[in-house]
Design a protein around this nucleic acid. Structure first.
Lengths: 216, 216
DNA sequence: CATTGTTTGAAACAAACGTTTGTCACATCG
DNA sequence: CGATGTGACAAACGTTTGTTTCAAACAATG
């Protein structure tokens, strides 16, 4: 299992891990300090001792979960000489692998962020600046390179076209799976979706690109 | 204010309305029966009398909210002789108007559904079948008409490309607004987004409809 | 008017909640 | 050695939760 930080206090680390899973599963109100401590094998008073109160535990747990859950920026592995289309494909694939794909026990990290999206708390700001904005900036660079000279809001909307497609398979999973059936849903594997979203996004960008025929 | 049903009991109706807002704002665990009854101007025991317990109140409130919140199918107003592209534009616009656009007090209806998407409860099934599947079926018909003969999972993915783009502006609003700034976010009005998403989706569909060119 | 069934009212219930307390174990350092 | 500070522990704190109780108020019907 992945360590949540470099802290030297093992109890504190176990509390952060347990709190992340409990908060992700039941939300801030639904999760109880007793369940968190039980899962962490710690005493009930440990939360108050290490974090002060439930709210600060939540704050620390969300930040710790995402500092460890997302290894690094998703498109750093792209060869620098690759074209923007290829970098977009890698970006989408990494996005799907990390956010959407359910690799068993590591799925709860992003449930925390989905809850923050619906009703953002104080930690949402730090989370956005620290983890999301770097990714978004790289996506914007790719789209900007694919279609130079677009107005600002068109550029924003095109980035959201990419992100929206990816995020749907995480956020709308429960409904989407019921809509098309479990077996059809299972056929939408990461490989297929990455290819689908990439090609759709490229077509969308080209549709808005400068009237000059933009060869890629 | 919109009535939540045709029931004859005014207290029951006020409880449903108040419960919807409280559950949408704070979730099932966060909302309290006391706050609901206070908002509805009803006695604390009214919930137990009319609905039995909190869970059945939640179930009824979610269903009632969506039975009244979404007036009718979004694309019924499309002229029957309109082409699929024009019907897609109307579909997207209605989707954005109803789900995304914040028309003051009616915004909480869809918060309920977003919460159901993250952690579906028993009502999610009824909600999907009753309110979402009819819309999804119509979208599939449009896409099928735009690009006949596609394989099933490509058709599904293309529908999700449309829905994912629309839903993002609702689900990712808090994060997206912070990412691009409030003033840039304000410029993404419904009219602009409807046009953007429609054109992007049409380009995406055409990318897969065309005879298979050399893929990756 | 008396009776019946239905709805509301204030009060209380046990359980669970977040938080606090006081104490004990243990390591560190003068 | 004693003094000091850190952390774990059981127990209890006061509050809030969902739920229940029972009597009063009401409308409808005989």
């Amino acid at each position: 299992m992945g360590e949540l930080g470099t802290g030297l206090d093992p109890t504190r680390e176990r509390l952060l891990e347990a709190a992340g899973e409990e908060f992700a599963a039941h939300g801030f109100d639904g999760a109880t300090i007793r369940a968190i401590c039980r899962r962490a094998g710690a005493n009930l008073a440990a939360v108050n001792y290490h974090f002060g109160d439930k709210e600060r535990l939540y704050y620390e747990a969300v930040l710790a979960a995402h500092r460890c859950g997302l290894p690094h920026d998703p498109d750093l592995s792209a060869p620098p000489e690759a074209g923007p289309a290829e970098r977009l494909r890698i970006y989408v694939r990494r996005f799907l692998e990390q956010v959407v794909a359910v690799d068993r026990s590591r799925s709860w990290h992003h449930d925390l962020m989905l809850r923050e999206m619906i009703r953002p708390s104080g930690v949402c700001e730090a989370l956005t600046e620290e983890r999301i904005r770097p990714r978004f900036r790289r996506l914007r660079e790719i789209v900007e390179e694919l279609a130079p000279g677009l107005e600002q809001r068109r550029l924003d909307a095109l980035c959201f076209t990419v992100i929206g497609q990816c995020l749907f398979y995480r956020m709308g999973r429960s409904v989407a799976e019921r809509l098309i059936g479990p077996q059809a849903w299972a056929r939408l594997d990461t490989e297929f979706l990455a290819d689908h979203i990439t090609r759709c996004s490229l077509a969308a960008v080209e549709a808005w690109a400068a009237p000059v025929e933009a060869g890629r």
